[in-house]
Design a binder for these strands. Structure first.
Lengths: 166, 166
DNA sequence: TACATTTAGTCCATCAATGAACTATTAGCT
DNA sequence: AGCTAATAGTTCATTGATGGACTAAATGTA
C-alpha cells in the first residue's frame, strides 16, 4: 500500500520522512473515505457534494437557505453550487425562488420529497460510518478529532498568511 | 468552520455525531492538504498527481518504471496515468519507449532535466510540510500516523468485502 | 500450431469542479 | 437623487479524472 510513499520519502533526505508519509496518509484517507461515500450514493444518483448540500439544507432552519450559505457550509464554490442546485431542483428535492427582501438572493427550500429522500438515505450510511471506525476506542476517536482540527487550523493559518481569505 | 457539519450531525440522531464529524474532518483535511500542494505546484505548471508521479519515478531504481507500477504507487487509474505521462513527456521530464522483452509494456525513464527539476522542486515544499505539522510533537505525529493507517485499513477491508479488489 | 484469454496501455465520451467574465440588484457616498 | 462599490448568482470555457471500448502483444491450452 504505502511502498510508494515510503520510497519517495526516503529519497528526500532533507525532509522529515515521517511528515511526508503523514501528508500522503492524510490525502489517502480523505480520498478513500470520499470514494466510499460516492460508491454508496451512486445507486441513488447523487454524488458526495450533492448529498452534502442536501443534508445541510435538510438540517437548516425551516429547510431553507441561500446558495451562498450552502457554499460556506459545504465548502463549495458558487459555480459548482449552481450546478448542484440545478440537479437537486431537477429531481424535485429542492425548490429555487427569488427572495422578496433582496432580489439578488435565491431562496432554496427543501421539498417534502427532499426530506423523505434524505431521511431514507441517512440510515443506509450508518453501517459504513460504523465500519470506518471499527476498532477505534472513544479515546482514539477523540485523539483523531483533536489532531485533525489542529492540522486544519495550521493549514488555515498558512492559507490566511498568503492572502487567500476564502 | 465546522458549523455545517455539527448541525448535520445533530440532525441525525441515529448516527454517532462524533463519527460523522470525524468523517467530514478527514475529507476536509485531505482536500485542504491537497489544495495547498496544488497551489505550491501551480507556478511550476504541475498538478499534484503529476508531481507525485514524477517524484515516484525520481525515486525508482534507475529512474525507470512501467506505467502500471506508477498507477499502483501513485493510486491512479491507467487512463489518467496516460495523460500524466503525456504531459511529463511533453515537458521532457520523462521519456517513453517500448520494452524489448515485452512489447506491450512502455518503459518510462526520468530524464536529466526531470531529475534536476525534481531536485529543485522538493526543497520548496519543506517549509510547507513543516508548517502543516507546526505544534505537533513527535508523539502526536506517531499517533496520527497510527490512527490513519488503522482507518485506511478498515476502509480497505470494506472495499475488499464488497468485491472491489483494485 | 491455432485460438481463446489475459495483460498493458491508449482513445474517446462524460462528469465534477474551477476561474473568469457577466448580469442584476443593493448598499454606500457625496 | 445619482453614481460608484460591493454582493449574489449564473454562464462559459477549461482542467482533471473516470469508465468503457479498443488495439496490440503475450500466455495458456488444446
Amino acid at each position: 500500500m504505502q511502498t510508494g510513499i515510503q520510497r519517495v520519502a526516503e529519497s528526500i533526505p532533507a525532509m522529515s520522512q515521517t511528515d511526508v508519509v503523514l501528508v500522503r496518509l492524510l490525502m489517502m484517507s480523505g480520498v478513500v473515505v470520499n470514494d466510499e461515500l460516492e460508491y454508496l450514493l451512486r445507486p441513488h444518483r447523487l454524488n458526495e457534494s450533492e448529498f452534502r448540500t442536501l443534508a445541510i439544507l435538510f438540517s437548516s432552519p425551516d429547510g431553507r437557505a441561500y446558495p451562498g450559505e450552502l457554499c460556506q457550509y459545504a465548502t463549495q464554490k458558487p459555480t459548482n453550487m449552481t450546478r448542484i442546485i440545478d440537479t437537486l431542483v431537477e429531481r424535485d428535492l429542492v425548490t429555487r425562488s427569488r427572495s422578496a427582501q433582496d432580489r439578488r438572493r435565491v431562496v432554496l427550500q427543501i421539498t417534502p420529497q427532499g426530506r423523505r429522500f434524505t431521511r431514507q438515505l441517512l440510515p443506509m450510511l450508518f453501517p459504513y460510518v460504523d465500519a470506518t471506525f471499527k476498532g477505534f476506542s472513544a479515546d482514539e476517536k477523540q485523539q483523531l478529532d483533536r489532531l485533525l482540527r489542529k492540522l486544519i487550523h495550521n493549514l488555515d493559518s498558512m492559507l490566511a498568511a498568503r492572502g487567500g481569505v476564502a
